[in-house]
Amino acid sequence: MTIDNIIKIKNISFTYPESDSPAIDQLSFEIPRGSWTSIIGHNGSGKSTIVRLINGLLVPNENEDSFIEVDGTKLTDDSVWDIRNKVGVVFQNPDNQFVGATVADDVAFGLENRGVPRSEMVKLVPEAIKAVGMTDYTHTEPANLSGGQKQRVAIAGIIAIRPKVIILDEATSMLDPEGRDRILKTVHQMQDDYNLTVIAITHDIDEASLADNVIVMDDGHLITQGTPKDVFAQAKLLKEIGLDIPFYMQVKQALLEDEFPIPEQVNSEKELIKYLCQLNSKK
């Protein structure tokens, strides 16, 4: 049985009009349905461009055998609105994506665009606000919300339209640690409740290490793809393209440098903790 892939991207290239070299170069990857995928890479590696290509905000360079497919629908000029119905994006800056004058208005914005009758909106909007734990703030104006709360409202706006895929485009990068944790928790809950596929673009390696699937980008190319365990085992490769490695890998390497014998196959936080504890008990 083949794995059910909700997003298929093949041979996509994209060049910004003002630049000579492509931001995305011959990119192909697939994302399994229901998974949490983190896309990492340093600044300017083309991560955010991928998001804009997937929901049709940017149009890829013309190429015969390239395509973007979301949930069985190929992205074309005609299907772009269908695709946007299936993909919800939370952007980086919480201030600049809040359209409504109050929380409820903002959550309703996506529904209004789709012509959902008001009688249904009255049910859907409070439901979505409740799902992200913002019920007490239903009539609050954005100026009186924290960044983390605004991002949760943005998630509610997406939940209200029931998408298949939710993309976090560095959605936590402007938040304080507490706000970030709450957002990630909320999205994990949403993933379970609504069987969502999550694509998280991030700089935060520790966040990426919690994903099911990691894609590493460099200069518009896909460098490697796999489980966090497999990807972060290639510490050398990551350092070469200027990326950090997760904290447990740093600990492992520092211990190795001090000639502490840590086996090669210890490649996750849990395994490292377990190994170190066992080591202690043997003495």
């Binding site: 952007f91 800056n93 359209v99 529904l111 209004e112 012509g115 909106m121």
Partner: peptide
Amino acid sequence: ETAIDLSTAMESRGYRGDDGRTKFRV
């Protein structure tokens, strides 16, 4: 910059600008 970001966000949330929009606030 805010205007550009906001218009991107609005478009990705399905805003087309034509008729057929409903209103939540009455």
